[in-house]
């Protein structure tokens, strides 16, 4: 009997912890959506800001986030994929390869603000790109690199060894095997990883603080060397800068809603895809 009660209490406390977790996280989402929805309108999504950030829309901010995210992916996806291909397909199990593996793991754990400082010192200062879309994209790209590498590695490892063997036994070269058998088979997994890291990159603020972001910039970014406005930074700036905190706060709700919606739906798609793949592989 006593055993029974202990088990009941134990399981109930576990239930309580997941209930609390979900209610708090749900509260955040609900709160942002309920306060943000009234702000959202067609104009808010398509118009530039007016009157020192107190009126108008946030179109350039959204565009800026899209540019930064795309830019970082243009840089990180080919590099990350190539790295994963080397580690999974070509690399001999040597010391050097282990060093690469460890460095990727550690790169994944570096705080995002440190990436920001690296970007500031290297891209903004050393290469002289200035505070720009390019610097920001590269910084975010380095941040996304380990995510993409490990996701791609996982996808490549999941490709059965036997079909690589089959391809090679037919007289295909290693490159042909990789390009025509391994990569197509691993593609859904790689895609999932890329989408997940897009979600992550789109919401990052610290790396673009000193490398790309501007609180106010007239019009849309014109070249890769211009400063950009971006959603996450914009939310931060609306809360901490500017002269009209109350009017800015309403816009911040709208921006938070857009960002949250973007990020949740992107990662939702990725995780849904992954779920599908898992059930497919059994």
């Amino acid at each position: 009997m006593k055993r029974d009660i202990i088990q009941k209490i134990g399981f109930f406390s576990l239930f309580l912890s997941i209930l609390i977790t979900f209610s708090f996280l749900g509260m955040i989402v609900y709160f942002i959506f309920s306060r943000g929805l009234p702000v959202i309108s067609w104009d808010f999504l398509t118009q530039p800001p007016r009157n020192a950030m107190t009126e108008g829309g946030v179109a350039p901010v959204i565009i800026g986030t899209v540019y930064l995210t795309l830019g970082s992916m243009i840089f990180a996806v080919p590099l990350g994929l190539a790295c994963a291909v080397y580690l999974c397909e070509y690399s001999p199990k040597s010391f050097v390869v282990n060093v690469i593996r460890i460095s990727i793991n550690n790169l994944a754990g570096v705080p995002s603000v440190v990436f920001g400082l690296f970007g500031l010192a290297v891209f903004v200062k050393f290469f002289g790109f200035g505070v720009s879309l390019l610097s920001g994209s590269l910084t975010l790209g380095i941040l996304a690199l380990p995510l993409i590498i490990s996701a791609s590695q996982e996808a490549l490892i999941a490709v059965p060894y036997s079909i690589r063997e089959a391809s090679l036994s037919l007289g295909a070269t290693q490159w042909q095997t990789i390009r025509r058998i391994v990569l197509p088979t691993a593609f859904p997994g790689i895609l999932t990883g890329v989408i997940l890291s897009i979600g992550r990159v789109a919401g990052e603020t610290a790396p673009i603080l000193f490398t790309a972001a501007a609180f106010y910039k007239r019009g849309y970014p014109k070249s890769i060397f211009s400063e950009v406005m971006a959603l996450p930074y914009h939310i931060y700036a609306l809360m901490t800068e500017g002269a009209h905190p109350d009017k800015q706060r309403a816009i911040a709700y709208g921006c938070s809603l857009i960002l949250l919606f973007l990020v949740l739906s992107i990662s939702g798609v990725a995780i849904f895809l992954r779920q599908q793949q898992r059930s497919y592989h059994g």
Binding site: I163, S169, L170, G171, A172, T185
Partner: peptide, 27 residues
């Protein structure tokens, strides 16, 4: 290419039947 091999477990490529066979020719 001159010495082909059939393995213990059937290991078709995750492609369609036609592509499975044409693959060896294409490479």
């Amino acid at each position: 290419r001159r010495v082909g091999m059939v393995f213990q477990k059937p290991n078709p490529f995750p492609k369609n039947i036609f592509e499975n066979i044409s693959y060896g020719l294409e490479v």
